[in-house]
Structures are given as C-alpha cells and as structure tokens.
C-alpha cells in the first residue's frame, strides 16, 4: 500500500493489541472523522463535567470546521487546559510516528495540550497518518532533534500498573483505553 510501503501496519497492530491498545485504520480522513464522531457519541460525550471530549489542535483538525463539530457532538471542546482535560471523558490528539516493532506512538509533545489530552482523560484517541509508520523507537526519535523538541513522548498502550500483588491493572493515572486511528490519506510530518 502506498501509505505503508514497508508493510509495517500489521506488525504495529499485533504489538499494540498485545498491550491492550485498540487499532483502527481508515483510507480517508472523512471516514476517520465519521468513526471518531460516532465513537464520541457512543461513549456518551456531552456538555457536562466529566463528559467532555477535548481535542488538541493538530493538522487533522485544522482542515475541519470546529464549530460544526462542536454542534454535532455537544461537549466536544477545543480549549485544552488542565481543568477541561481533567473533566473530559475522551482526549483526542494527532501523533506523528508509529513504531511497528513495539506498537509505540511517538510525538513531539512540546505543546502542553498534546500531553494533557493524552494523559488526563480515561480514553485517548490517537490519530496517526499511516505514512508515519517506522520500524522502531530509534527510527521514530531519529526524526527529531531533541534539542528542538523540549518534550518527546512515546506511548505504548494504555496506562498500567502491577503494583498491587503484581496483578496487571489498566488505567492508573493515564488513560485506560487507547484507540489508535490510522488514516491513509492524512499527510505526515516531513521526513
């Protein structure tokens, strides 16, 4: 496939699912948007505390009509602060790279909103251009100079702990669900 010439998607999917992430893939942005909006509705996103969804500014969003989206799903907000993110049920952000070997998403998370929407709400929806697939973490980090990115983040599955009797429990401080949405026609970051 053109957006995944190295055929890395299958590997990413199996690794990410092995650590309890959910992985979806869509050919177009329109389809992906349709999925996201219906997902938000299903999850009961509404204009009430603890029911918001927060969507951090990103290339995907810049081509959407935010006001229209907000009308379609009340409670979907684009003003990301610690307070709104902490009161949200779903956080949405765009990631840049996906490392197939470990099922890891990688982003330059220097903008604080990126981190807030992916750490505070119980559900994180991560949008990712399929062309952002790379082999491993080193290949992903290798795309950025850390001296130009104050905060590089790699995320592999939802938040987890085994601190009580070594029983694996998902969703401690970060999200308990991570939904990775690959989009074939979404442009990635320049290589």
């Amino acid at each position: 496939m053109r957006s995944d010439p190295a055929g890395l998607f299958a590997g990413f999917k199996s690794r990410a699912e092995a650590v309890s992430a959910e992985v979806r893939r869509f050919a177009t942005r329109t389809e992906a948007l349709g999925f996201v909006l219906s997902f938000l509705r299903e999850e009961g996103v509404a204009d009430a505390p603890d029911c918001f969804a927060v969507w951090a500014d990103c290339p995907f969003l810049r081509r959407c009509d935010r006001a229209a989206l907000g009308r379609e799903v009340p409670g979907l907000r684009f003003d990301v602060t610690p307070e709104t993110a902490a009161a949200a049920r779903v956080g949405i952000s765009q990631m840049e790279w996906a490392a197939a070997r470990t099922g890891t998403l990688v982003e330059d998370a220097t903008r604080v909103e990126q981190r807030l929407v992916s750490s505070l709400p119980p559900i994180h929806v991560a949008l990712i251009p399929t062309s952002g697939l790379v082999d491993d973490l080193a290949a992903a980090f290798g795309r950025v100079d850390p001296r130009r990115a104050a905060f590089l983040a790699a995320i592999t599955g939802p938040s987890r702990t085994a601190d009580i009797e070594r029983v694996l429990t998902i969703g401690v401080h970060g999200p308990r669900r991570l939904i990775v949405v690959f989009i074939d026609d979404l442009e990635g970051a320049p290589a």
């Binding site: 690794r15 650590v19 602060t81 610690p82 070997r101 470990t102 099922g103 890891t104 998370a109 220097t110 903008r111 604080v112 909103e113 807030l116 973490l137 980090f141 850390p146 001296r147 990115a149 104050a150 905060f151 590089l152 983040a153 790699a154 995320i155 592999t156 599955g157 939802p158 938040s159 987890r160 085994a162 970060g174």
Partner: peptide, 20 residues
C-alpha cells in the same frame, strides 16, 4: 524490569517546555 518490550510511556525532556 517488567518483561515488557517497552513501558507504556517513554518521555524525553530536553530543556524547559511551556506551562499550560
């Protein structure tokens, strides 16, 4: 440490970012 291929989060902090 935990028999994982990678931990859920790896953060690389290089200098001061902005607060919210």
């Amino acid at each position: 440490a935990t028999s994982q291929l990678l931990t859920s989060y790896v953060s690389v902090i290089s200098g001061a970012a902005q607060n919210s």
